[in-house]
Each structure stands twice: as C-alpha cells, then as structure tokens.
C-alpha cells in the first residue's frame, strides 16, 4: 500500500500503471482514430501495393514486408468514404491481429496517447451505417473524439463471396 501511495504522489494523481493504455492515434480526413500500441509492429510510408483480384475495394493489395506478404486495408474505404488516393506522405500502420500481420492505410500518424481504461466510452448503438461495429470504444483527447478501431471487424469480410 505504501508503495502505491508513493507512486501516486510522484505521478501527481495521474493514471496508474495497471489502468493505463497506450494508443497510437492517426488521422483520416478530419477524424482521429487509434489502435493499441502493443499491436503495432511497424509504421512505414506508402510505397504502392500489388492489387489483389476478387477482393473488396477496401483491400488495397499486398506488400512485401521483409519477405512476408502482408495485406493492406484502406481504412477510409472500409468506413465507406471511398478509396484513398495515396501519396508518398500516406502511412501504412502494420499490426498483428491474432496470428496474422496486416497493414492499414491512413493519412498520417498523429500522436501517442496514454489513457485510462476507465475513460473508454462505449460506442452508441443503432448507427445504421454499421460503423459502430468497426469501433471498440471512444475516448476523448484534447476535447476531440478518438475512435478505437476493432481490428478484427475491420479486416473481416475482405473477400468477395460468390
């Protein structure tokens, strides 16, 4: 108990270790989204991808990540806002989802956030576009809404079913 008190004093009442969560925030248009930092493997500049046939429009294709083939998902297209027209300044965030490595294409990486798990708000239900299923929660950072991406939902349904 004593140790805890000292820590609280030291951190001046900020977020305690066991409750904190670090996120990488990135921008998509004027929106900010985030993923847990522990899932992120690599951030690299957009350098083109080989398109995959018979996949949905949000699958931008595959890239070579040091000898491994990694699929790239266009987050904007996944959210139904049409395909991104990527430039050299666009960024691919490579993450591990379960056993698989995937990359998502975003406009830019903006920040690393440290938040308290208790500050995660649930996503309001009943959104007709189904976007709520792609988020795990919402947090507020600098008075701005930051959606936490549900990676499993994002990469799901990539293949066009006959």
């Amino acid at each position: 108990m004593e140790a805890l008190n000292i820590k609280d004093d030291y951190e001046n009442g900020e977020i305690s270790a066991e409750n904190s969560l670090q996120l990488i925030a990135f921008s998509l248009g004027d929106q900010t989204y985030s993923v847990e930092i522990t899932t992120v493997r690599e951030i690299r500049a957009w350098n083109g991808a080989t398109p995959l046939p018979n996949t949905r429009e949000f699958v931008r294709g595959v890239i070579n990540l040091r000898g491994t083939i990694v699929p790239i998902f266009d987050l904007r297209a996944r959210f139904g806002d049409g395909q991104t027209s990527p430039t050299k300044t666009h960024v691919v965030v490579v993450m591990s989802v379960g056993e698989k490595w995937v990359g998502i294409l975003v406009d830019a990486v903006s920040d690393i956030l440290t938040i308290n798990k208790n500050d995660i708000h649930p996503v309001p239900e009943g959104n007709s576009s189904g976007d709520s299923e792609l988020l795990r929660g919402i947090i507020t950072h600098n008075d701005q809404m930051v959606g936490m991406i549900d990676l499993h939902a994002v990469i799901d349904g990539a293949k066009i079913e006959e």
Binding site: P53, N54, V62, I69, P71, K100
Partner: peptide
C-alpha cells in the same frame, strides 16, 4: 512461393504470391 493465407486468405484463381 509465398503464402497469401499466412496473413490473408485464399483468393480464387491465385495460388500464392512471390517477391
């Protein structure tokens, strides 16, 4: 030959990828 299924899934008409 590199597997596509390792990080993605099988795609009809494609046997795999290569660098």
């Amino acid at each position: 030959i590199k597997s596509l299924e390792e990080n993605f899934e099988r795609i009809e008409g494609i046997a795999g990828g290569t660098i």
